[in-house]
Design a protein around this nucleic acid. Structure first.
Lengths: 167, 167
DNA sequence: ATAAACTTTCAATAATTATTGAAAGTTTAA
DNA sequence: TTAAACTTTCAATAATTATTGAAAGTTTAT
């Protein structure tokens, strides 16, 4: 496999994974492109490389910046804006996990908590609703908490050895 | 909040979460409905409760069975097929994690491995592609391995205490 | 102040994905 | 074997989501 082919394969696979996760394809592809680029890229560069429109590029870059994954890089003497992405995968994971937790998991935990807190009127179906949503609530909360802990703290010897144990 | 309202809220929230994950809304809602039901439900029951068509119900039930989350329950003397879902959240998580790993994560690991294995021609951009996809490969593989470990093994004292530590 | 260089916005359109419903298929009972 | 009871399939359609491109907006240099 040659460089160009490998690059395209990486970008399109990463893009596909993104859309599978509710992150849109263009957004994932822009991130992928920046991730393997050796230098900051302009909007023009990105449009050309991925063959997407100016508007699309602009909107998705802004989203990536909202997420905190991509930042502007001003190059002295240049009028254009250039962009770079976080290159450390550990840090990237941390940001993504945190953002997904905030946007997706937290609201679900809230609803599960509300639903599982309805008054028990003694009927079998109410009991079941309470019991099952409570179980889901606890699980979701634990999983989310674990994810944040694992991912937030820079790896110290303890987490390192735990991961070793589990891996 | 009354039972009916709580039920609807749960089903629609769960459905929304599903679509956020690339699982379609109807599929997630059917699972949610079965999850809080006190008895097996027929296709008719599901169609009526969720106001979706027969075809839609049939297809999505089949998908849920493919995933191993829902099973047919034959009721003696009844002609119709009835359905139930796994009620233990721990087990549900195990099944879903395994399935997502198989369908989504594994193919990505493979591509990352292929891409990061291209021949190093000495150029800076090739080096960067190899380095970054390798980092992503390792991370993805570790995360996937951890997920499987955490989720596959029934909780014994060790994992329980690790979770306590992390939570 | 003006214009060139660039970015953002957003209504229109295209692409994708989900849903319907009716015809075809299957199973069971008599 | 026939017909009723039920399920599956799939082409058509609807709903949703992504993308374009040109007009409006902004910033910088002169």
């Amino acid at each position: 496999m040659k460089y160009e082919e490998a690059k395209d394969k990486f970008i399109s696979t990463w893009g596909g994974l993104g859309s599978l996760w509710g992150i849109n394809k263009a957004m994932a592809q822009i991130q992928a492109l920046l991730f393997i680029s050796t230098k900051p890229l302009s909007m023009e560069d990105i449009m050309e490389e991925l063959k997407i429109s100016r508007g699309n590029t602009s909107m998705n870059l802004r989203q990536l910046m909202d997420w905190g994954i991509v930042t502007k890089q001003l190059i002295p003497g240049e009028r254009k804006e250039y962009f770079i992405t976080e290159k450390d995968v550990q840090e990237l994971t941390r940001i993504i996990a945190k953002e997904r937790s905030r946007r997706e998991i937290q609201p679900v935990i809230k609803v599960l908590n509300d639903v599982s807190s309805i008054k028990d009127d003694g009927s079998e179906k109410t009991k079941e609703l309470i019991k099952q949503t409570k179980a889901l609530h606890d699980l979701t909360q634990n999983a989310d908490g674990m994810l944040n802990k694992l991912v937030t703290q820079k790896h110290n010897w303890l987490t390192k050895s735990i991961i070793k144990l589990l891996t």
